[in-house]
Simulated scan of single mutants.
Amino acid sequence: MAGFSAGAGDLLARWLDHLRALDGASENTLKAYQTDVAEFLGFLHGHHGESLGVSRLSQVTQSDMRAWMAHERGRGLSARSLARALSSVKNFIRWLADREGFDATHVLAARAPKFQRKLPRPLAVDAAQAMIEQVDTQAMEPWIAARDAAVVTLLYGCGLRISEALGLLGESHPLPEVLRIRGKGDKERLVPVLPAARDAVADYVRLCPYPPEPGLPLFRGKRGGALNPRLISRAMEQARLSLGLPASATPHAMRHSFATHLLAAGGDLRAIQELLGHASLATTQIYTAVDQARLMEVYRDAHPRA
Protein backbone atom coordinates (compact mmCIF):
# COMPACT_ATOMS: atom_id res chain seq x y z
CA MET A 1 0.00 0.00 0.00
CA ALA A 2 1.25 3.48 -0.89
CA GLY A 3 2.45 5.72 1.92
CA PHE A 4 3.72 3.08 4.32
CA SER A 5 5.71 -0.13 4.41
CA ALA A 6 4.68 -3.48 3.01
CA GLY A 7 4.93 -4.91 6.53
CA ALA A 8 2.30 -2.53 7.87
CA GLY A 9 0.16 -3.16 4.80
CA ASP A 10 0.33 -6.89 5.45
CA LEU A 11 -0.75 -6.42 9.07
CA LEU A 12 -3.68 -4.28 7.97
CA ALA A 13 -4.73 -6.89 5.40
CA ARG A 14 -4.59 -9.65 8.04
CA TRP A 15 -6.71 -7.63 10.43
CA LEU A 16 -9.33 -7.01 7.75
CA ASP A 17 -9.34 -10.73 6.90
CA HIS A 18 -9.88 -11.45 10.60
CA LEU A 19 -12.88 -9.09 10.74
CA ARG A 20 -14.31 -10.53 7.56
CA ALA A 21 -13.99 -14.15 8.69
CA LEU A 22 -14.80 -14.00 12.40
CA ASP A 23 -16.86 -10.86 12.99
CA GLY A 24 -18.92 -10.91 9.80
CA ALA A 25 -18.21 -7.24 9.10
CA SER A 26 -19.83 -5.86 5.94
CA GLU A 27 -17.69 -4.81 2.97
CA ASN A 28 -18.67 -1.15 3.48
CA THR A 29 -17.52 -1.33 7.10
CA LEU A 30 -14.27 -3.02 6.09
CA LYS A 31 -13.62 -0.36 3.47
CA ALA A 32 -14.11 2.40 6.05
CA TYR A 33 -11.76 0.63 8.49
CA GLN A 34 -9.17 0.18 5.77
CA THR A 35 -9.27 3.87 4.81
CA ASP A 36 -9.03 5.07 8.43
CA VAL A 37 -6.14 2.80 9.44
CA ALA A 38 -4.26 3.33 6.15
CA GLU A 39 -4.34 7.10 6.76
CA PHE A 40 -3.00 6.54 10.28
CA LEU A 41 -0.20 4.25 9.08
CA GLY A 42 0.67 6.66 6.30
CA PHE A 43 0.96 9.49 8.82
CA LEU A 44 3.21 7.46 11.14
CA HIS A 45 5.45 6.49 8.23
CA GLY A 46 5.90 10.12 7.21
CA HIS A 47 6.12 11.36 10.80
CA HIS A 48 8.97 9.04 11.76
CA GLY A 49 10.48 8.45 8.34
CA GLU A 50 10.96 4.75 8.90
CA SER A 51 9.28 1.50 7.95
CA LEU A 52 6.43 0.25 10.08
CA GLY A 53 6.36 -3.23 11.53
CA VAL A 54 5.10 -4.76 14.72
CA SER A 55 8.05 -3.40 16.69
CA ARG A 56 7.43 0.20 15.64
CA LEU A 57 3.66 -0.02 16.03
CA SER A 58 4.10 -1.37 19.56
CA GLN A 59 5.93 1.86 20.47
CA VAL A 60 3.28 4.38 19.40
CA THR A 61 3.18 7.12 22.04
CA GLN A 62 0.63 9.62 23.29
CA SER A 63 2.60 12.26 21.43
CA ASP A 64 2.22 10.27 18.21
CA MET A 65 -1.52 10.04 18.73
CA ARG A 66 -1.85 13.76 19.44
CA ALA A 67 0.24 14.62 16.38
CA TRP A 68 -1.88 12.35 14.15
CA MET A 69 -5.15 13.76 15.44
CA ALA A 70 -3.90 17.34 14.99
CA HIS A 71 -2.81 16.46 11.45
CA GLU A 72 -6.26 15.01 10.63
CA ARG A 73 -8.07 18.06 11.97
CA GLY A 74 -5.62 20.26 10.05
CA ARG A 75 -6.58 18.64 6.77
CA GLY A 76 -10.24 19.35 7.46
CA LEU A 77 -11.51 16.15 9.05
CA SER A 78 -14.59 16.82 11.20
CA ALA A 79 -14.70 15.87 14.88
CA ARG A 80 -17.26 13.18 14.07
CA SER A 81 -15.09 11.66 11.31
CA LEU A 82 -11.97 11.82 13.48
CA ALA A 83 -13.79 10.03 16.29
CA ARG A 84 -14.71 7.27 13.84
CA ALA A 85 -11.12 7.07 12.55
CA LEU A 86 -9.77 6.87 16.10
CA SER A 87 -12.15 4.01 16.85
CA SER A 88 -10.85 2.16 13.76
CA VAL A 89 -7.23 2.71 14.80
CA LYS A 90 -7.92 1.52 18.34
CA ASN A 91 -9.59 -1.64 17.07
CA PHE A 92 -6.61 -2.37 14.80
CA ILE A 93 -3.99 -1.74 17.48
CA ARG A 94 -5.99 -3.70 20.06
CA TRP A 95 -6.06 -6.70 17.70
CA LEU A 96 -2.33 -6.35 17.00
CA ALA A 97 -1.48 -6.00 20.71
CA ASP A 98 -3.51 -9.12 21.59
CA ARG A 99 -1.81 -11.01 18.76
CA GLU A 100 1.76 -9.87 19.50
CA GLY A 101 1.56 -9.40 23.26
CA PHE A 102 2.45 -5.73 23.76
CA ASP A 103 0.91 -2.94 25.84
CA ALA A 104 -1.28 -0.66 23.71
CA THR A 105 -2.34 1.68 26.53
CA HIS A 106 -1.03 4.84 24.83
CA VAL A 107 -3.23 4.23 21.80
CA LEU A 108 -6.29 2.94 23.64
CA ALA A 109 -6.22 5.85 26.12
CA ALA A 110 -6.43 8.47 23.35
CA ARG A 111 -9.60 10.52 23.73
CA ALA A 112 -11.91 11.15 20.83
CA PRO A 113 -12.85 14.77 20.14
CA LYS A 114 -16.24 15.78 21.44
CA PHE A 115 -18.96 16.50 18.93
CA GLN A 116 -22.68 17.14 19.00
CA ARG A 117 -24.29 13.90 17.96
CA LYS A 118 -27.11 14.43 15.50
CA LEU A 119 -30.36 13.02 16.79
CA PRO A 120 -32.58 11.02 14.43
CA ARG A 121 -35.56 13.04 13.25
CA PRO A 122 -38.62 10.80 13.43
CA LEU A 123 -42.07 11.70 12.22
CA ALA A 124 -45.02 12.08 14.55
CA VAL A 125 -47.37 9.09 14.63
CA ASP A 126 -50.05 10.85 12.57
CA ALA A 127 -47.45 12.12 10.08
CA ALA A 128 -46.03 8.62 9.60
CA GLN A 129 -49.52 7.29 8.90
CA ALA A 130 -50.26 10.20 6.56
CA MET A 131 -47.02 9.46 4.69
CA ILE A 132 -48.11 5.88 4.00
CA GLU A 133 -51.58 6.98 2.91
CA GLN A 134 -50.20 9.70 0.63
CA VAL A 135 -47.69 7.38 -1.04
CA ASP A 136 -50.55 4.96 -1.70
CA THR A 137 -52.39 7.53 -3.83
CA GLN A 138 -49.62 9.07 -5.94
CA ALA A 139 -48.58 6.70 -8.73
CA MET A 140 -50.68 6.57 -11.89
CA GLU A 141 -50.57 2.76 -11.97
CA PRO A 142 -52.39 1.15 -8.99
CA TRP A 143 -49.85 -1.66 -8.58
CA ILE A 144 -46.96 0.82 -8.29
CA ALA A 145 -48.87 2.88 -5.73
CA ALA A 146 -49.56 -0.31 -3.76
CA ARG A 147 -45.90 -1.33 -4.07
CA ASP A 148 -44.61 1.98 -2.73
CA ALA A 149 -47.09 1.92 0.15
CA ALA A 150 -46.12 -1.65 1.03
CA VAL A 151 -42.42 -0.78 1.18
CA VAL A 152 -42.99 2.32 3.34
CA THR A 153 -45.30 0.30 5.61
CA LEU A 154 -42.51 -2.24 6.15
CA LEU A 155 -40.04 0.53 7.00
CA TYR A 156 -42.37 1.96 9.62
CA GLY A 157 -44.25 -1.13 10.80
CA CYS A 158 -41.21 -3.42 11.09
CA GLY A 159 -38.33 -0.96 11.45
CA LEU A 160 -36.57 -2.33 8.36
CA ARG A 161 -33.79 -0.59 6.51
CA ILE A 162 -34.69 0.18 2.89
CA SER A 163 -32.08 -2.36 1.74
CA GLU A 164 -33.67 -5.03 3.94
CA ALA A 165 -37.19 -4.36 2.64
CA LEU A 166 -36.04 -4.43 -0.98
CA GLY A 167 -33.95 -7.51 -0.26
CA LEU A 168 -37.04 -9.62 0.40
CA LEU A 169 -37.51 -12.39 -2.16
CA GLY A 170 -40.59 -13.86 -3.78
CA GLU A 171 -40.73 -16.73 -1.31
CA SER A 172 -41.34 -14.20 1.49
CA HIS A 173 -44.96 -13.91 0.32
CA PRO A 174 -47.27 -14.30 2.06
CA LEU A 175 -45.39 -12.61 4.87
CA PRO A 176 -45.18 -14.74 8.03
CA GLU A 177 -45.97 -13.43 11.49
CA VAL A 178 -42.21 -13.21 12.12
CA LEU A 179 -39.69 -12.28 9.42
CA ARG A 180 -36.11 -13.53 9.47
CA ILE A 181 -34.01 -10.55 8.36
CA ARG A 182 -30.32 -10.61 7.47
CA GLY A 183 -29.00 -7.13 8.11
CA LYS A 184 -25.69 -5.31 8.42
CA GLY A 185 -22.65 -7.49 8.90
CA ASP A 186 -24.74 -10.45 7.75
CA LYS A 187 -26.33 -10.55 11.22
CA GLU A 188 -29.70 -12.27 11.43
CA ARG A 189 -32.65 -11.11 13.51
CA LEU A 190 -36.34 -11.93 13.92
CA VAL A 191 -38.87 -9.15 13.33
CA PRO A 192 -42.60 -9.44 14.13
CA VAL A 193 -44.82 -8.44 11.20
CA LEU A 194 -47.95 -6.40 11.91
CA PRO A 195 -51.19 -7.37 10.13
CA ALA A 196 -51.15 -3.97 8.40
CA ALA A 197 -47.76 -4.77 6.85
CA ARG A 198 -48.90 -8.22 5.73
CA ASP A 199 -52.05 -6.74 4.21
CA ALA A 200 -50.11 -4.00 2.40
CA VAL A 201 -47.75 -6.53 0.82
CA ALA A 202 -50.66 -8.82 -0.09
CA ASP A 203 -52.42 -5.90 -1.83
CA TYR A 204 -49.27 -5.15 -3.80
CA VAL A 205 -48.81 -8.78 -4.86
CA ARG A 206 -52.44 -9.02 -5.92
CA LEU A 207 -52.07 -6.01 -8.23
CA CYS A 208 -48.51 -6.58 -9.42
CA PRO A 209 -48.20 -7.88 -13.03
CA TYR A 210 -45.11 -9.88 -12.00
CA PRO A 211 -46.02 -12.86 -9.79
CA PRO A 212 -43.63 -13.49 -6.88
CA GLU A 213 -40.98 -16.07 -7.78
CA PRO A 214 -38.50 -17.80 -5.46
CA GLY A 215 -35.05 -16.30 -5.76
CA LEU A 216 -36.31 -13.09 -7.40
CA PRO A 217 -37.00 -9.76 -5.64
CA LEU A 218 -40.45 -9.45 -4.12
CA PHE A 219 -40.60 -5.76 -4.98
CA ARG A 220 -40.25 -5.12 -8.70
CA GLY A 221 -39.55 -2.11 -10.84
CA LYS A 222 -41.81 -1.06 -13.71
CA ARG A 223 -40.11 -3.45 -16.14
CA GLY A 224 -39.93 -6.36 -13.72
CA GLY A 225 -36.39 -5.93 -12.44
CA ALA A 226 -35.30 -5.25 -8.87
CA LEU A 227 -36.83 -2.08 -7.44
CA ASN A 228 -34.38 0.83 -7.21
CA PRO A 229 -34.44 2.33 -3.69
CA ARG A 230 -34.24 5.78 -5.25
CA LEU A 231 -37.81 5.32 -6.51
CA ILE A 232 -39.06 4.94 -2.93
CA SER A 233 -37.09 8.02 -1.91
CA ARG A 234 -38.72 9.96 -4.76
CA ALA A 235 -42.19 8.76 -3.81
CA MET A 236 -41.62 9.88 -0.21
CA GLU A 237 -40.19 13.20 -1.38
CA GLN A 238 -43.32 13.85 -3.41
CA ALA A 239 -45.49 12.85 -0.45
CA ARG A 240 -43.66 15.04 2.05
CA LEU A 241 -44.04 18.05 -0.24
CA SER A 242 -47.77 17.37 -0.53
CA LEU A 243 -48.09 16.97 3.24
CA GLY A 244 -45.84 19.88 4.17
CA LEU A 245 -43.39 17.63 6.04
CA PRO A 246 -39.69 18.51 6.52
CA ALA A 247 -36.88 17.29 4.25
CA SER A 248 -35.90 14.84 7.00
CA ALA A 249 -38.98 12.72 6.10
CA THR A 250 -36.92 10.08 4.27
CA PRO A 251 -37.15 6.27 4.10
CA HIS A 252 -34.72 5.97 6.99
CA ALA A 253 -36.84 8.38 9.03
CA MET A 254 -39.62 5.77 8.97
CA ARG A 255 -37.26 3.33 10.71
CA HIS A 256 -36.37 6.05 13.24
CA SER A 257 -40.07 6.66 13.76
CA PHE A 258 -40.67 2.95 14.40
CA ALA A 259 -38.05 2.93 17.16
CA THR A 260 -39.05 6.24 18.74
CA HIS A 261 -42.77 5.45 18.81
CA LEU A 262 -42.09 1.99 20.23
CA LEU A 263 -39.95 3.48 23.01
CA ALA A 264 -42.57 6.16 23.76
CA ALA A 265 -45.18 3.40 24.10
CA GLY A 266 -43.10 1.73 26.80
CA GLY A 267 -40.96 -0.60 24.69
CA ASP A 268 -37.89 -2.13 26.31
CA LEU A 269 -34.63 -0.64 25.01
CA ARG A 270 -32.92 -4.02 24.73
CA ALA A 271 -35.87 -5.46 22.80
CA ILE A 272 -35.82 -2.46 20.44
CA GLN A 273 -32.10 -3.05 19.90
CA GLU A 274 -32.86 -6.60 18.80
CA LEU A 275 -35.68 -5.49 16.50
CA LEU A 276 -33.49 -2.90 14.81
CA GLY A 277 -30.48 -5.19 14.52
CA HIS A 278 -28.09 -2.80 16.30
CA ALA A 279 -24.82 -4.46 17.30
CA SER A 280 -24.47 -2.15 20.31
CA LEU A 281 -27.04 -0.97 22.83
CA ALA A 282 -25.31 2.43 22.72
CA THR A 283 -26.59 2.89 19.16
CA THR A 284 -30.16 2.25 20.29
CA GLN A 285 -29.85 4.51 23.33
CA ILE A 286 -29.84 7.54 21.06
CA TYR A 287 -33.62 7.09 20.83
CA THR A 288 -33.93 7.85 24.54
CA ALA A 289 -32.41 11.25 23.75
CA VAL A 290 -34.93 11.69 20.93
CA ASP A 291 -37.76 10.87 23.30
CA GLN A 292 -36.45 13.32 25.91
CA ALA A 293 -36.08 16.02 23.25
CA ARG A 294 -39.70 15.51 22.19
CA LEU A 295 -40.84 15.73 25.82
CA MET A 296 -39.00 19.02 26.18
CA GLU A 297 -40.71 20.36 23.06
CA VAL A 298 -44.10 19.47 24.50
CA TYR A 299 -43.14 21.04 27.85
CA ARG A 300 -42.00 24.27 26.20
CA ASP A 301 -45.16 24.46 24.10
CA ALA A 302 -47.31 23.92 27.17
CA HIS A 303 -45.33 26.32 29.39
CA PRO A 304 -44.25 29.25 27.22
CA ARG A 305 -42.13 31.87 28.88
CA ALA A 306 -43.91 35.09 29.75
Rank of each mutant, 00 (worst) to 15 (best):
M1R: 11
M1G: 14
S5P: 02
G7L: 13
A8Q: 11
L12I: 12
R14I: 13
R20S: 15
G24W: 13
N28E: 04
L30Y: 10
E39V: 09
L41W: 06
F43E: 08
L44E: 07
H48V: 06
E50A: 15
L52E: 12
Q59E: 15
Q59I: 13
V60L: 13
Q62D: 05
D64C: 09
M65A: 05
A67N: 01
M69S: 03
H71S: 04
H71M: 02
E72K: 07
R73W: 00
R73G: 03
G76S: 08
L77C: 09
R80Y: 10
R80Q: 13
S81F: 05
L82N: 03
R84E: 08
A85S: 14
A85H: 11
S87L: 14
S88E: 10
S88F: 09
V89I: 14
V89N: 10
N91Q: 15
I93V: 15
I93A: 09
R94G: 14
D98E: 15
D98N: 14
G101W: 07
F102I: 15
T105P: 13
L108Y: 09
R111M: 10
P113H: 07
F115D: 04
Q116V: 15
K118G: 14
K118D: 10
K118M: 07
K118Y: 06
K118P: 01
A124T: 05
A128S: 11
M131D: 01
I132V: 15
E133T: 06
D136Y: 04
T137F: 02
A139R: 12
E141N: 06
E141W: 08
I144A: 04
D148F: 04
A150Q: 02
A150M: 03
V151C: 03
V151I: 11
V151L: 05
T153W: 03
L154T: 02
Y156H: 07
G157C: 06
G159W: 00
A165F: 00
A165Y: 00
A165P: 10
L168H: 01
P174T: 04
P174W: 01
P176G: 01
G183Q: 03
G183C: 03
K184D: 07
K184Y: 09
L194Y: 04
P195A: 12
A200R: 07
D203I: 09
Y204Q: 06
P209W: 11
P209S: 10
Y210Q: 05
P211K: 05
P211Y: 05
P211W: 04
L216G: 02
L218A: 02
F219Y: 03
G221E: 12
P229G: 04
L231N: 14
R234G: 10
R234L: 14
M236I: 01
M236S: 01
E237L: 01
E237P: 02
A239C: 05
A249H: 03
P251M: 00
H256C: 06
H256S: 07
T260R: 05
A265E: 12
G266C: 04
G266M: 08
I272N: 08
I272G: 07
Q273T: 09
E274P: 06
A279H: 12
L281C: 13
L281Y: 12
A282L: 14
I286A: 07
Y287C: 08
T288N: 04
A289T: 10
A289Y: 12
V290H: 09
L295Y: 05
V298E: 02
